[in-house]
Nucleic acid binder design. Structure first.
Length: 570
RNA sequence: AGGGGCGUCGCCAAGUGGUAAGGCAGCGGGUUUUGAUCCCGCCAUUCGUAGGUUCGAGUCCUUCCGCCCCUGCCA
């Protein structure tokens, strides 16, 4: 990069086009260049009311990514203004997910609730300036007064209370003297604004709920609008990045900043949230899948949650790369899951050691191989990475191959084992099938075959090369295991599109559990967090929830790209 | 009396008045002891629409069309 002395290097950099900056990067670069800020600060502000999903990963990568890229800081701030829906379990899972993705927040974890005292004082400031009032309208009345999208609202009958009266009433609210829903504190802005957010929005409401951070200290809680911008200001956030649906809130965000003695002026910028087809990314719907038992918890490997994907075998690098590739814009769109799948395969192909595991075993007896002989073969852990080393595999008289890798007869396109034909056993011998033994119902239960002498690491001397290579495992020295094959949770490309119930779109075959799978013994050393490619099958990892030493359980993260399977279907 | 956004290849996405990047998917071909990877090639005479301005428009102006968000004491 800094090699200015090499003409080759400089030619290279001239030839390689730099990735264009997205609009947030352009804004930040300009702010830095023009001295609007000397150092930027962002924040990732999740509400701890659920687990993080792939959509949050985009926001995390953006916020932490900007801080990293431009030498600034990024805070993790829990937006905890609604104690009824939030809890510590969610707080902990969110911290874990952010760290797992590879990001570190600046200093201590922040909570909006850290600022409740300040926010309360600012509410009083607003009241004293005649900019907020206690309103006794109930929820239903409030709705009537609010007007509609096409009609202005009308002023609350309580709007003109005196400052003294409001101060006294708000203090009583805080002291718990009123019932929930009986009154609220509202900003006094404009009931006729075409922007409904400006029609005297509620800034404090009564909730006699225990808060996971502040306990029972408060029975009134600030609204999102009253808390977010001011929290940004307190933390010195320069670029407050959020999703598009908050754009209508920006005038209100700015209104509070303008009318309160805040220590800094943060700016809000909006980008399009991530949508992925064949999936739902709504905390409400994900929660429903969990609560109603459609999946095995928030971290079910089929869930698009960060924790589910982690358990499934996705890597932080693959997720970060995905977020990098999809870009950051202001136009809503739906990213094809194929893009995500490409990113996992790409990372795992480059980095996952290879191993062999037979999912649906078919016994092969090598009739010309001594029954008691065991050869320890050495095979590479990766076809193009010597640094990943080699491993030992026992070769024996009987082996297992995949049921689908044998056919009694087949056309020339079939490159596996066929009766009377040859195939290469990966890293071992070329074998030739002589006989298929069947049970009473005609199912093939065993193959009798011969090894072709001298084919270890070499082609047959008679010049008859096998057409293909298949994976195998010793029938006498292997590891019995369970393998779980996941398919997409939904068959519908847009399960949560308007009008339909997303549960109706669920794929009934989204999980296939295979028992009695035969893995090579080296896999017995694997630990949770390791990723493997089971050759010719896909990428797998140990399941963190169900795997035990006695009975390993492997999750298929993603299959290998399969041009043969696609061709067969046609 | 409505307001705020967004429309560039099947999908994502550059483009910031000078003659349509890139990635995913797809399709051909090559290498291969993984039907994987890798490599090579193909894949938008046109940017929602219709006008206008200009020597020149995806970029500027106007018209219309389509989609998304907003009427929680959720965030």
């Amino acid at each position: 990069m800094s090699d200015n002395h090499s003409p080759i290097a400089s030619n290279d950099t001239a030839d390689v086009k730099a990735k264009p900056l997205h609009f947030i990067q352009q804004i930040i670069r300009k702010d830095l260049e023009q001295g609007v800020h000397s150092k930027i600060a962002t924040r990732f502000p999740p509400e701890p009311n659920g687990y993080l999903h792939i959509g949050h990963a985009k926001s995390i990568c953006l916020n932490f990514g900007m801080a990293e890229e431009f030498g600034g800081i990024c805070n993790l701030r829990f937006d905890d203004t609604n104690p009824e829906k939030e809890n510590e379990e969610f707080v902990n899972s969110i911290m874990e997910d952010v760290k797992w993705l590879g990001f570190q927040w600046d200093g201590k974890v922040k909570y909006t609730s850290d600022y409740f005292d300040q926010l309360y004082a600012w509410a009083i400031h607003l009241i004293k300036n005649g900019l907020a009032f206690v309103c006794d309208l109930n929820a239903e009345q409030m709705r009537e007064y609010r007007g509609t999208l096409v009609e202005p609202g009308k002023n609350s009958p309580y709007r003109e209370r005196t400052v003294e009266e409001n101060l006294a009433l708000f203090e009583k609210m805080r002291a718990g003297e009123f019932e929930e829903g009986s009154c609220s504190l509202r900003a006094k802005i404009d009931m006729s604004s075409p922007n409904i957010n400006l029609r005297d929005p509620i800034i404090y409401r009564i909730k006699k709920a225990h808060h996971h951070q502040t306990g029972d200290k408060w029975c009134i809680y600030p609204s999102y609008d009253f808390a977010h911008g001011q929290s940004d200001a307190i933390e010195g956030i320069t670029h407050s990045i959020c999703t598009l649906e908050f754009e209508d809130h920006k005038p209100l965000y700015d209104w509070f900043i303008q009318h309160l003695p805040v220590p800094a002026i943060p700016r809000q910028y909006e980008f399009a949230r991530l949508n992925i087809n064949y999936a739902v990314t709504s905390k409400r719907k994900l929660k429903q899948l969990v609560d109603e038992g459609y999946v095995d918890g928030w971290n079910d490997p089929r869930m698009p949650t960060i924790s589910g994907m982690r358990r499934r075998g996705f890597t932080p690098a693959s997720l970060r790369n995905f977020c990098e590739r999809i870009g950051v814009t202001r136009s809503d769109g739906v990213v094809d899951v194929g893009m995500l799948e490409f990113c996992v395969r790409d990372d795992l192909d480059k980095n996952a050691p290879r191993a062999m595991c037979v999912l649906r075993p078919l016994k092969v007896t090598l009739t010309n191989y001594p029954a008691d002989k065991v050869e320890i073969l050495t095979v590479h852990n990766h076809p193009n990475r010597d640094d990943l080393g080699d491993r030992a595999i026992p070769f024996t008289h009987t082996v297992f191959i995949e049921q689908e890798d044998f056919r009694e007869e087949a056309n020339k396109k079939y490159k596996r084992l066929v009766l009377g034909k040859r195939v290469r056993l990966r890293g071992a011998y070329v074998i030739e099938a002589d006989e298929a033994i069947k049970d009473a119902t005609g199912n093939i239960i065993e193959i009798r075959a011969r090894i072709i002498e001298g084919t270890l690491g070499k082609d047959p001397e008679d010049g008859v090369k096998p057409k293909g290579v298949i994976h195998w495992v010793s029938a006498t020295q292997h590891l019995d295991c369970e393998v779980r094959l996941y398919d997409r949770l939904f068959n519908d490309e847009a399960p949560d599109a308007g009008g339909k119930n997303f549960l109706d779109a669920m794929n009934p075959n989204n999980l296939e559990i295979l028992q009695g799978c035969k893995a090579e013994i080296s896999l017995g050393n694997s630990i949770v967090g390791n990723n493997f490619q089971f050759e010719r099958q896909g990428y797998f990892c140990l399941d963190s929830k169900y795997s035990t030493v006695e009975k390993p359980v492997f999750n298929r993260t993603i299959s290998l790209k399969d041009s043969f399977g696609k061709e067969e279907q046609e």
